[in-house]
Design a protein around this nucleic acid. Sequence first.
DNA 1: GACTTTATGGTACAAATGTTCTGTGAGAAG
DNA 2: CTTCTCACAGAACATTTGTACCATAAAGTC
Lengths: 203, 203
Amino acid sequence: MDALTEVQQQLYDWLIDYIRQNQHSPSIRQMMRAMGLRSPAPIQSRLEHLRNKGYIDWTEGKARTIRILKPMGIPILGAIAAGSVVEAFTDSVEQLDFSSSLLRPGDYALRVRGDSMIDALIDNGDVVIMRPVQDPQALKNGTIVAARVNGDGTTLKYYHRKGNQVTLKPANRNYKPIETPAMEVEVQGVLVGMWRGYNPVAS
Amino acid sequence: MDALTEVQQQLYDWLIDYIRQNQHSPSIRQMMRAMGLRSPAPIQSRLEHLRNKGYIDWTEGKARTIRILKPMGIPILGAIAAGSVVEAFTDSVEQLDFSSSLLRPGDYALRVRGDSMIDALIDNGDVVIMRPVQDPQALKNGTIVAARVNGDGTTLKYYHRKGNQVTLKPANRNYKPIETPAMEVEVQGVLVGMWRGYNPVAS
DNA sequence: GACTTTATGGTACAAATGTTCTGTGAGAAG
DNA sequence: CTTCTCACAGAACATTTGTACCATAAAGTC
């Protein structure tokens, strides 16, 4: 990714902020005013530079169609020590992207009920993000899947297959694995992510 | 939230899909063509209905400025049993929202290093989403915070305060709590969420 | 100095676009 | 039946808006 000049960076930062707040891109004359300019031409020029450098894109001739190509999300500022006190904030620019790369169309979420996956650090109340499987044959052993056995109900388990025998293992010693023919198992999705929300105002 | 007529629902669904894919709202004539109409007036009418019912909003007179008011995200299809096989998919319409309500401007993420929060089900490599604290005095005991002690480094710990004494407790018996005067503790954020990504193609 | 890139101001134009108005018709509610 | 709401077509208009062109100037590069 090419570097930006100062004014290009200013416009780019403002653009991202505007789109985040308003859910749509501004018009060129809006950017003109925001940058303190009195002509649309400089904005046009900066936008073309931003496009040439791969930061943005838009549909030519159409109003307010600028797209941010770099993933949007919240910045991962650095690493935090959960062991001993070691690391401080850095100026890392890694981004946690919720919009495009992590989630795909078709993904869905499930709220976890129960504690059978507790050893996999998935708790009751957590939200798991699942992705439908196109090719059940390509499923790797050890992946966590949402599977329905015998039309009964959907459970979250480790998936293990040996020949035509499938074992669904919970991550909790108090529960027993389910062993059944592959025919009986309908894999509804593989685990791609997990979200746990905290309420900061709790006592 | 008021109910929608069939054509209104169609337009609304198409709108959400379009905005999700293109990062900007379509024009009225685009919607017209997508709905198979030959006049912009019906779209105008449907949009006003959607606005009156609280689903969308836009800036009058400006092109492509429609905003979706209902949170966007991926649908939470239901609950999944992690204990025993109990629940099936439902037609729940709850949404896991990554764009507006869960995350706020100013939020940032940190990648967790170490295992001191393992008993809180936060693992090495997880990404925690933190929110800056406006009023450190209002911090409740028991919340998980990113705190810097004595200018040393930032750690993720449970926050407990008693008078002017602050205790930062790890969620791992192998580590000891840090006890220090409140003066020495700089709380950089409270935990509002946690994300763990899985790679479905792993063996 | 000559040349290129970038930044800026000003103006102009065609296309895109939101909006309004008129008229017609279907269906539900009273 | 009357009334109301909603849906659709067609046309027209004013504004917004992307784009192009011309000219000036500052800064860096050769």
